[in-house]
């Protein structure tokens, strides 16, 4: 009996990610969710700009490539034109938290019935490791060789906390994938985000804290520990908003 194999919704190709990049794990979790919910063939994904720009090659569902940061806007259009389809956007932190901040904030405020997978690795990976809006204070990157100085560059953007202030979004959760336990938690969160859309509940965003061993200058296993030591204290895991749970409590 096969107990673990590649999900059907993940294309049988080698990904363009560096060794040890957790994008691959997150791709698999999204594909597993699509498989388990039986929405393969009824799903449209929106690929971002960044390391995951080639995501349209890695999923077997229909994919659209959006302009940098505009994936939530494209997803809005697709979902409004085809409300029967399941629409998700897959975005990195340079895409969603920087150039695409306006799009994500307003998609959340309008409570668009879409699912957003937000991969936060605190760096611009694709372009070679420059400082991102999510880079940690003191983090050394190509463009902050002495560490990010908040006096000069400001403080990192906490997307889940920021969006949780809005009335609109249905479900916001931050997870990570740096251990088998956290991978299982991330899987549950991604499944819930897709299920919310199927049930017509509204905007669901799962922020996944991810590793970038290449640009962090660490071995893959060290990068996973770096998440525990540095990323989680600044970006605490947890559910930031879940309106359906609130309603159940009131009832």
């Amino acid at each position: 009996m096969i107990v673990f194999d590649k999900p059907r919704s993940l294309a049988d190709v080698s990904t363009s990610y560096c060794p040890g990049c957790t994008h691959g794990i997150i791709h698999r979790l999204v594909a597993e969710a699509i498989d388990e919910l039986g929405i393969e063939g009824n799903t449209i994904g929106i690929a971002p700009v960044g390391c995951s720009v080639m995501a349209y090659n890695f999923f077997t569902c229909d994919m659209i490539e959006a302009a940098h940061g505009r994936a939530p806007a494209v997803a809005t259009g697709v979902k409004r034109a085809r409300p029967d389809k399941i629409v998700f956007s897959y975005q990195g932190d340079g895409d969603l938290a920087s150039i695409g901040t306006a799009e994500i904030v307003h998609a959340a405020a309008r409570n668009e019935n879409i699912t957003v997978i937000f991969v936060n690795n605190a760096i611009y990976g694709m372009t070679g490791g420059q400082m991102a809006p999510t880079s940690l204070p003191g983090q050394i990157t190509q463009t902050s060789p002495y560490g990010r100085d908040p006096k000069h560059c400001g403080y990192p953007v906490k997307v889940c906390e920021m969006l949780s202030q809005l009335e609109g979004p249905e479900y916001l959760q931050r997870v990570t994938v740096n251990s088998p336990k956290h991978v299982n938690q991330a899987k549950k969160a991604i499944l819930k985000a897709f299920r919310n859309q199927i049930e017509g509940k509204g905007f669901s965003l799962v922020e996944v804290i991810s590793a970038c061993p290449t640009n962090w200058g660490l071995r893959p296993d060290e990068a996973l520990r770096w998440i525990d030591d540095n990323m989680i204290p600044y970006y605490p895991l947890g559910v930031y908003k879940d309106r359906s749970e609130k309603k159940e409590e009131q009832a």
């Binding site: 096969i2 673990f4 990049c21 691959g24 088998p180 991978v183």
Partner: peptide
């Protein structure tokens, strides 16, 4: 057969049968 290796593999290299 805990599957932790396959859960953490970013490239879906490992298939596990029991």
């Amino acid at each position: 057969g805990c599957c932790n290796c396959a859960l953490m593999c970013p490239d879906c290299v490992i298939r596990i049968e029991k």
